[in-house]
Write a protein that binds this DNA or RNA. Structure first.
Lengths: 280, 280
DNA sequence: GGGATTATTCCATTATAGTGGAATAGCTAT
DNA sequence: ATAGCTATTCCACTATAATGGAATAATCCC
């Protein structure tokens, strides 16, 4: 970081650009912006479209897209020159998982939870300053879940969100969450104080549950997963129809907390990685 | 591409560097190199280690690692400053999948294949100029598979490899595959002419199978998956113990080819994407 | 067809990113 | 401690990457 210039982690490229406006941008940062943009958009885009939407110079964008295509980070998605995230990202994502115990280990816990409750179970994490579902196991009940795997959602909209920021001070939390993220899906605004109180409660109980604000028929349960330290690296969640949740509240709660604790223990005590077998 | 300088697709950064030696490298390309390096290494590394292993200037490497950590593409993996692939890559990989029909659709086919044969089924693709297992469904038999998901393997070592390059001319193929990749795991060298003959046979039959060169006890079956055009975007494979393969050869072959064809049809006829439901 | 609009490529300029090397900090083993 | 490593940070220099704007190509709509 250059002197006299404070750029914090997890700031969006746009935030950074605002700070030193007019300044040239680094190619690498712009490239990441392009990838993020396509991720959010969830479908291919033309270079020109990208340039306009991320407010980058066209010439730069064309060149970067070209470079990214050449390295496999992007791929042409049709004959009209549209590009989308490339195969290389898929492979890099795979490699991430093999190293990161959490995503490896949790699968069986999600299965177990879904089996025990017949509800949908999820592993949730922060992605920058947003909440995201990293993995999901659908329950038997085929109802529509509010958010898709990988979609970035405002932290205050979610039960997990309260746990995922619980290691921060009130001030840090308000600093961390973009102001507009307190606007709920129904356009009403959640008072930050209320949110902070929720967080305090979640922190004390190491658990949080509420009626989803994303729809009108589900109740969400969340329990934190720790990895050594006090910060929640992720949460395990259950999404249940409200009647079910009410009827089985204690059981769901206990099951979820037990699973989360078990998973945390496993992560904490098994820092050693299994080395992979070579080609026979 | 600048005039008088021919840089082809899928060349490794090292190959490019060899061309214009002494020339400065673009940050973005170096960054991709770092990611690839960590993917290959499969465990965290210090910046210094990275710099040495990819033969990049230390100062540059430190700076790039810093930038990549800031954007979430890398993460610190321990307190000793080691970094590894970051969560963002996982999410970008997820986004890739949601868009790319193949990886979405094939799961059920892998299950079906594994179920019908009790053998291990795989979806294989090219990653640059190497072969890679993109998805795997283990059969009931718990024997050790030669290559892991996401690991890059020389094309000539694999049955799928013969199909994945079948759309190229002989010349293009030899151009595409690094010379040293014809050295088999047992150190013997596969004659390129033999390989080209294999490819021709695979191309004609739209199928290939052989006793694995990666181990001494399996037989690999591969069938191509097409997506509109004539090029094989991927292959479906079966890995079976040799006795099993011999005993069930025709059945396995037919089942595999049928699955691959069905999957190809689905991909070809369903180019329309389902738009995702909004938050309720 | 042609006139307007949008998308892509080309090009000169200059701020700065990538670089080598030197300085400093951290370890390890005596 | 101290010497001998290795790892990391700092710094000045310049080749070049990012940029704006102009030129060209493609697409759309009367």
């Amino acid at each position: 970081m250059g002197p006299g210039r404070v750029v914090e982690k997890n700031m969006t490229a746009e935030m950074v650009r605002d700070i030193d406006s007019g300044r040239r941008m680094r190619g690498l940062d712009r490239a990441v912006e392009i990838l993020d943009y396509l991720r959010k958009r969830r479908r291919p885009a033309r270079p020109n479209e990208i340039a306009v939407d991320i407010a980058a110079p066209k010439s730069t964008t064309y060149e970067l897209v070209d470079l990214l295509v050449n390295s496999g980070m992007l791929e042409y998605a049709d004959k009209e020159g549209r590009v989308f995230l490339g195969r290389k990202l898929y492979f890099l994502g795979l490699a991430y998982q093999t190293q990161f115990d959490l995503t490896r280990e949790c699968k069986s816990y999600l299965d177990q939870l879904a089996q025990a409750t017949h509800e949908t179970s999820q592993l949730c994490m922060l992605d920058g300053n947003k909440y995201t579902v990293a993995m999901m196991r659908e329950g038997v009940r085929p109802f529509r879940i509010s958010s898709d795997v990988g979609e970035r959602t405002p932290i205050p909209w979610t039960a997990s969100g309260r746990l995922l920021v619980a290691h921060m001070s009130d001030e840090e939390i308000l600093d961390f969450i973009p102001a507009q993220d307190f606007i709920l899906p129904n356009k009403s605004r959640l008072a930050p104080e209320k949110f902070l109180a929720d967080v305090a409660q979640a922190r004390a109980a190491q658990f949080y549950s509420f009626d989803s604000v994303a729809d009108n028929f589900t109740h969400c349960f969340a329990a934190p997963i720790h990895q050594g330290g006090p910060i929640s690296v992720a949460t395990l969640c259950l999404i249940a129809p409200r009647e079910d949740a009410a009827r089985n509240y204690e059981r769901y709660r206990e099951t979820l907390i037990a699973s989360a604790r078990e998973l945390s223990d496993k992560l904490g005590t098994a820092p050693v990685r299994i080395s992979k077998a070579g080609v026979a």
